[in-house]
Design a protein around this nucleic acid. Structure first.
Length: 606
RNA sequence: GCCCCAGUAGCUCAACGGACAGAGCAGCGGCCUUCUAAGCCGUCGGUUGCAGGUUCGAAUCCUGCCUGGGGCACCA
């Protein structure tokens, strides 16, 4: 269709507008192409020196084009309005085509052809021997959604995790365990909470009694000396942590293809630092200073840009910075064909990430320009939760906020509060209460399952339905708001579709061309379906699940509107009924596909 | 001091340089003997932080400023 119009315009020597939009024309209940003629008009006025307002010339051009396009096959109506050429296509043929496409492609609707390109997404990156809390949740949910979206956009995605399995926090935990909990085992369920309690306890003991610190330092030396007994305990307890994480990942429906360990990067990292020094990229200031990569100096930049990258402590012990270099290299060694290596990491690490990338570039790795930092903002805790946090937050410093200032505090890794288990249980409790209220006749087991689908969906959706780089202020009410622009609205639309299809015994398999005059609600719904594949590509290109949540919500709203206005089962004309049933089936499929990209389940009943 | 991000309805947020800046929540008023009311409709609500600039056209791009948050050598 677009091709035909394009060819015709070309034939008639009418310049072709640059921006092609296939969309509903504002205010109209039908759809078509919308072409603005302003750029051409502007160019013309400039070139020929016409004394004429651009909008007027645009309108003239649009009108001229309209005359030519009018008789094309498939074109139902053409109009030139305020400089736009609107070409309306035959809604019956188009409606059938959209519905047929969705139903033919099924779960693949919205999925692009395979590109034969692989990329890696590193996300989650929890520390072992520590809590996993709401602050970590956004990372996991975002990372997983981005992976699913990239996969749908045709990439082969390698999901990578990077476990912080060593460092002072681990040593502190081990010290507390050895000294006060020798021989204890975690519970079979919710290991993470147990582990995190021991960590909080370790911090409390050390804060209350700083004299104990030499014990911890002594333990660190035993670690450095690779004391076999300590190593064995470390491995065992680390495994508990990992099992705890797996519980959470299972619940969130997240998996990883490759797990890297921080502890494995320590030796290679130190070796790399030596190489950097040898090659004159790094400067060794030991023992009076650290090993640094003076990036701005090396690049001859007068203005502070990359600043100075510290790669090794003055005492020779390693930093995160030491280990991130070999990690990046290891990834490309294993997967040389990666077209991109994405790091889902807190926006505060932006400068640090740039330093890593630049250093790798200076080292001559040709893939350095394929590294990408996907930044996201923190989850904040509002004032009413801070109190709760502080009760268990014995490591963080007391907040010194002024009176009257909006109080929000980052849910940083030091804080134990709002653990995931607590959050999930509360979410489930609330969702279950609503299921009981809305649909009391469901069997208890079904109610329970639906409550999980709704609860997790609401949490995931609330974190994805905003710009990655905007703060997410956590509060129970909003995170678990089941109305409006939230996942239950979308799930509910899916349930309504399922219900209609159940009652009808499924949708007709054969293609149906609607003969009736389509209701504006039907047109709007079909438009939403047609837009979905484009939205997926855009979400992938920008790494923004937000586009998917917006599209899913718009689709759910369009469906609810349709549901309210257009009888399906009760339609008098069997052909209308058949077409609408197929439309319902297509909507159900697209809603399910969209929810899947967000990692959210689509219930059959709720 | 340098750098990054944000500032849009009372609140939380959308909006590919394009048509009248849209949703949800909260408020008010309607719609369930009829396909699940977790829904739908109506209504109220805006000088898109300020001032310039570019453009036929700016919430969007550029410059400056204001406000808030964050980052800047051995934390992770």
């Amino acid at each position: 269709m677009a091709e035909q119009v394009r060819a015709l315009l070309h034939e008639q020597h009418i310049p072709e507008p640059k921006a092609w939009r296939f969309a509903q024309v504002p205010g109209e209940g039908v759809w078509g192409f919308s072409l603005p003629f302003f750029p051409i008009a502007a160019a013309e006025v400039r070139a020929k020196g016409l004394k004429m307002p651009v909008p007027q010339r645009a309108q003239e051009l649009a009108q001229a084009a309209a005359e030519r396009v009018r008789d094309l096959p498939g074109v139902q109506r053409v109009e030139a309005v305020r400089g736009y050429l609107n070409i309306y296509v035959d809604p019956h043929a188009y409606g059938r085509q959209v519905v047929d496409t969705v139903l033919a492609q099924g779960p693949n609707f919205g999925r692009a052809p395979r590109r034969g390109q692989r990329l890696m997404v590193e996300f989650s990156q929890p520390n072992t021997h520590k809590a996993f809390h709401v602050g970590h949740l956004r990372n996991v949910i975002l990372g997983e959604a981005v992976c699913r979206i990239l996969d749908a956009a045709g990439y082969e995605v390698v999901r990578a995790n990077y476990l912080g399995d060593i460092g002072w926090h681990v040593i502190k935990w081990l010290w507390n365990y050895l000294t006060y909990h020798q021989g204890e085992e975690p519970p079979t369920e919710d290991k993470t909470t147990w582990i995190s309690q021991l960590y909080i306890e370790a911090n409390r003991r050390l804060k209350e009694n700083p004299d104990l610190e030499p014990q911890v330092r002594a333990l660190f030396h035993r670690w450095e000396a690779r004391d076999p007994e300590l190593l064995a305990l470390w491995e065992k307890t680390r495994q508990w942590s990992i099992e705890g994480f797996e519980e959470i990942y299972r619940l969130l429906d997240v998996h990883f293809d490759r797990v890297y360990y921080e502890s494995e990067m320590e030796e290679p990292g130190k070796a790399l630092v030596e190489e950097l020094i040898r090659r004159g990229i790094a400067r060794d200031l030991r023992p009076n200073g650290p090993v640094i990569v003076p990036l701005d100096e090396l690049l001859g930049l007068d203005k502070e840009t990359y600043r100075t990258y510290v790669v090794l402590r003055s005492d020779g012990t390693s930093l995160y910075a030491t280990k991130d270099l070999p990690l990046a290299i290891q990834k490309f060694r294993e997967y040389p064909d990666l077209v991109q290596s994405i790091y889902v990491i807190d926006v505060r690490q932006s400068l640090y990430m740039k330093q890593i990338f630049k250093t790798l570039e200076l080292m001559g790795y040709e893939w350095a320009d394929r590294l990408y930092h996907l930044a996201y903002e923190l989850v904040l805790l509002p004032a009413n939760l801070i109190q709760e946090v502080q009760e268990v937050d014995l490591e963080a410093e007391a907040p010194a906020e002024a009176e009257g200032k909006p109080q929000a505090k980052a849910a940083s890794s030091r804080e134990g509060a709002v653990l995931l288990d607590q959050l999930f249980q509360e979410a489930h409790r609330r969702a279950r209460a609503i299921v009981d209220e809305k649909n009391p006749s469901l069997p208890a087991a079904t109610k329970d399952r639906v409550a999980w689908q709704v609860a997790l969906g609401a949490l995931k959706y609330s974190m994805l339905a905003r710009e990655n780089t905007r703060f997410f202020v956590f509060n129970w009410q909003q995170a678990l708001d089941f109305n409006g622009n939230a996942s239950p609205t979308i799930q509910y639309a899916h349930v309504r579709c399922a219900s209609l299809l159940r009652k009808a015994g499924g949708a007709p398999e054969a293609s149906v061309t609607p003969q009736h005059e389509l209701h504006p609600a039907e047109v709007a719904l079909i438009s939403q379906l047609a837009a979905f594949p484009g939205v997926v590509l855009r979400a992938a290109a920008e790494y923004k699940p937000l586009h998917i949540t917006n599209a899913a919500f718009a689709l759910a709203r369009a469906f609810n509107d349709f549901y309210d206005r257009c009888p399906v089962l009760a339609a008098e004309d069997p052909q209308v009924r058949d077409f609408r049933l197929r439309l319902v089936a297509a909507t159900k499929q697209t809603l399910a596909n969209a929810l899947h990209l967000l990692g959210i389940e689509a219930p059959e009943v709720m």
